[in-house]
Every structure is written in C-alpha cells, then in structure tokens.
C-alpha cells in the first residue's frame, strides 16, 4: 500500500506529509496525557500496596510512600489465604485453557473441512450462542451443580468453561482457509482424519491456538460472577472472588492490603500481556473483524 502510494504519486505523498507536520507535536502531547491517565491508576495501586496502614491517615495524604513496606503482602499471605486463592485461580484457568485449545479446534476442523449430517445445526448453535450473556446460564448451572454435588469443587468451577463457542468460531474461520489440496494429499498418503487433524491441520493452526489459549486464560483468570456463585467456601475462592469479598467486607478500609491484593491479581496478567502483546491485540483485531 505504501509502495503504491510512494511510487505512483510522489508529489501527493509530500503534500500529505506537509499537512501532517503541524500535527505530530500536539498529537503526541495528547496521546501522552492520555497514557498518563491510563497508567495512573496502576501506579496508584502499586504505591498504595507499598504504604503502611498508618500512612493512609496522614493529612495531607502522601503520593509516594514515605516508609515503603512489604507488610501488606505478608499479611495477604498470613492473615488471608492468598496462596490458596492464587492456586485456585491458576488451576482453573490452566485446565479451562487446555480444554478450549484441545476441544474447540476439533469441532472447528469438523465444521471447516468435513462433510457430515448435523454440521449446519451445530454451526448454527455455535453462532447463536456466541453472544449469550453469562448471567442467563448462571442460575440453572448453579441448580445443576448443586444436584451433582459440585458446588465448592474444582469440576464445578471448570466444567462449564471447558469449551466455548468463541474458540470454535475462531479456529473454524482460520481452518476454512487451509487449502483442500493439502488435506487431499495427506488422504492419498493413507492418513485418517484424526492424523490429518493432528499432524497437518493443528501445526498450521498453531498461531490461532496461541491467541485462543492466551485469551481463554485471561478470561478465566478474570472471570467473576460464576466463581462468586460456585465458590462459597473461602477455600475454593478464586482471586477475584477473594478480592471482591474482602474489599466489600471486613477489610474495606484496609487500603494497603486491598491494593496489594489487586496487584497479586493483576500482575500475572500484565506479565503475560507484555510477553505476548502481539498475539493478543492482533488476534483480537483480525478475528473480531472477521465476525
């Protein structure tokens, strides 16, 4: 696109650049101001997590901690059972991610490349449930789990999210673009559909699976209303449930500890995001638009 622009009409390109020259400085200025507003609350959280409780009572309040301390973090681990919540969140998110990355592409492949009766029905179901609000399945799922004896258990937290229409849609859209000749060649070589799926299709789909895996993990890690209902004993709390419960209960004025708890909840996600930034933003942009 740029080559076309530069090659075909040089004078215009120059003209456009001149038009922009007045732009950049104030555009940068506004964008940086916006960036400060975006990052500010995170900074406020970090600084708050490092302040001893007494410092919150000072007037005027401090911005930077005067006597930085890790006391808030140690109290999370001694007074509250944060290691346990962290474990619960990690376990649930990992299993849910594995389930989605394994099962969704299986159906995605069947929908994209196989001919079978019932395919249109299943495709219709996937599309129809793509946007169903989470709240609608909450109560019946709770009743179901109660009767299966799965409230306050890991299966209770995991099972409903082991597959999802989003993952199927995502992988199906991608696999649809894989040339049929490639699959035919494998079939002629005597490979069955299961082997074609594992050895030909999945390796090509790897980038999409990475995006799906990261998005699924983040979604599960941050999910709230469902674990809030399904984890009623503190031992089964996930991090968001624990944080919400303590912040609206007896610890609501314990700002230092709440900021430390928020940090524990946010930090793993920030690390994942910084490491896999491209997979996340580009995955969303491209897949979202194909919808």
């Amino acid at each position: 696109m740029t080559a076309l622009q530069g090659g075909a009409r040089p004078p215009l390109a120059v003209h456009r650049r001149e038009g922009r020259r007045t732009g950049p400085l104030w555009v940068y200025g506004l964008l940086i101001l916006g960036l400060v507003l975006m990052v500010g609350p995170f900074l406020w959280m970090l600084l708050g997590a490092l302040k001893p409780q007494a410092e919150f009572l000072l007037s005027p309040p401090t911005f930077l901690p005067k006597n930085p301390t890790t006391d808030n973090f140690s109290r999370l681990f001694s007074e509250l059972d944060f290691p346990r919540f962290f474990f619960n969140s990690s376990l649930v998110a990992l299993v849910v991610t594995v389930g989605n990355v394994l099962f969704c592409p299986m159906l995605g492949y069947a929908l994209a490349k196989l001919q079978w009766r019932g395919k249109r029905l299943i495709m219709g179901l996937v599309l129809a449930t793509l946007m169903v609000p989470a709240g609608i399945t909450l109560i019946p799922n709770f009743v179901l789990m109660r009767n299966l004896g799965l409230v306050n258990t890991y299966p209770g937290l995991i099972l409903p999210f082991l597959v999802g229409p989003f993952g199927v849609f995502l992988t199906r859209q991608f696999m649809y673009g894989i040339p049929n000749e490639l699959l035919e060649a494998a079939r002629i070589d005597g490979a069955n559909e299961w082997r074609i799926f594992w050895q030909v299709v999945l390796p090509i789909t790897a980038p999409v699976l990475a995006t799906l895996g990261i998005l699924t993990f983040l979604g599960s890690w941050n999910s709230f209303i469902y674990p809030l209902v399904m984890a009623q004993e503190p031992a089964m709390y996930t991090l968001p449930v624990a944080l919400a419960t303590f912040s609206t209960g007896q610890y609501q004025a314990d700002h230092g500890m709440l900021m430390a708890g928020s940090l524990v909840l946010v930090l793993p996600v920030l690390i994942i995001f910084v490491l896999f930034q491209r997979w996340i933003t580009e995955g969303i942009a491209t897949t979202g638009l194909k919808g």
């Binding site: 099962f103 299986m106 159906l107 399945t137 099972l159």
Partner: peptide, 26 residues
C-alpha cells in the same frame, strides 16, 4: 457422519450439558 460427530463429541457433550441445557432450563 461418524467422523464428523466424533470430532464434535467433546464440544457437543460439554456444550449441551452446561450451555444449551441451562439456557433452556432458565
């Protein structure tokens, strides 16, 4: 058909029990 449904099975079972059924149940 069998191949197609075999690939669809894990999704269809989980999806049926924990999403389709609850939508109808609610």
């Amino acid at each position: 058909d069998l191949t197609g449904w075999a690939f669809a099975a894990p999704f269809v079972i989980l999806f049926g029990v924990f999403l389709a059924l609850p939508i109808a149940a609610s």
